[in-house]
Design a protein around this nucleic acid. Structure first.
Lengths: 145, 145
DNA sequence: TATATTTGCATCGTGAACGATATAAATTAA
DNA sequence: TTAATTTATATCGTTCACGATGCAAATATA
């Protein structure tokens, strides 16, 4: 059969699989703190810069607001963030970390190293990871343009 | 703040984003034929080898049967596959392509090249893709072990 | 050959993703 | 300044993912 239509030849399938499997490494670590992986990503955005409108958070994550809004509402229900209308612009909802949300930063500081060590292998080492990052960044940049 | 906790430093976030964005390139092409990306993956598995039990399809896709079963039932409802109990082993459900499911193989043969050309960029070329594949394969292999 | 265990699949509940649509505030144009 | 348009967010419906659980068929064990 045509080589092109073989699963083994597909970049997207590899990205999809690697993404899912690596997320599964995060899951048990995060669920200890009642978090999902996308919620952890939202926290990382807010740890870098607090008090952001929904749209800015969505842009950082390359997601649409129709994905991020329910995510943030679940996080609000968990007491991780607050969501308030902006006084400057009544359309915006400003998302802020609660003490609980902020305090997870230190509690989860062990996660990156733990996950990192789970992927180190023959062709994926501290030396080769920058090249891998560059390729993935270029793909993301290309697909956003 | 700690460098490790920055979004920019995360491999998983890159894989997750690249996977989502690349899937979005497939979506308009596949939806013409009423397909989703995971359904397309299942078809690729069956195009390579027809009449497979659910579990074998799941393994090829690195998914669990609780994801694949509903997927295949939707594909059955669309007339793409049939699902029948195996006579050898009454626990197995054997999935087979219908004529409709089989005929999509040719109709969708344009997809890989179209998607491929969407990702070609500075650091992602026919020369560098094999190295990228190897890295992703190693990550997948490492995480499955 | 009964009983226990494993295997293959299905079901259920929850949380994403995402296209489509809605709505209200802000901005622009007439 | 009213009307048209754009922007920011929210809501809805469908389809994954996936942990947990259930169940019947097959296999292993006593």
């Amino acid at each position: 059969m045509e080589e092109n239509l073989k699963l083994d030849n597909q970049l997207c399938f590899r990205l999809y699989t690697a993404s899912r499997l690596l997320t599964q490494v995060y899951n048990p670590l995060l669920s200890e703190y009642g978090l999902t992986y996308p919620q952890y990503l939202a926290l990382m955005v807010l740890w870098e810069k607090d008090a952001m409108p929904v749209n800015d958070i969505a842009k950082k994550l390359f997601l649409e607001t129709n994905t991020v809004t329910p995510l943030l509402k679940r996080m609000e229900a968990e007491g991780l963030v607050t969501r308030d209308k902006s006084s400057n612009d009544g359309r915006q909802t400003i998302v802020r970390l609660t003490q609980k949300g902020y305090s997870l930063r230190e509690k989860l500081s062990f996660v990156p190293d733990k996950v990192g060590s789970a992927v180190i292998c023959e062709t994926v080492t501290p030396e080769t990871v920058p090249a891998l990052f560059k390729m993935l960044d270029d793909i993301i940049l290309r697909l956003k343009a």
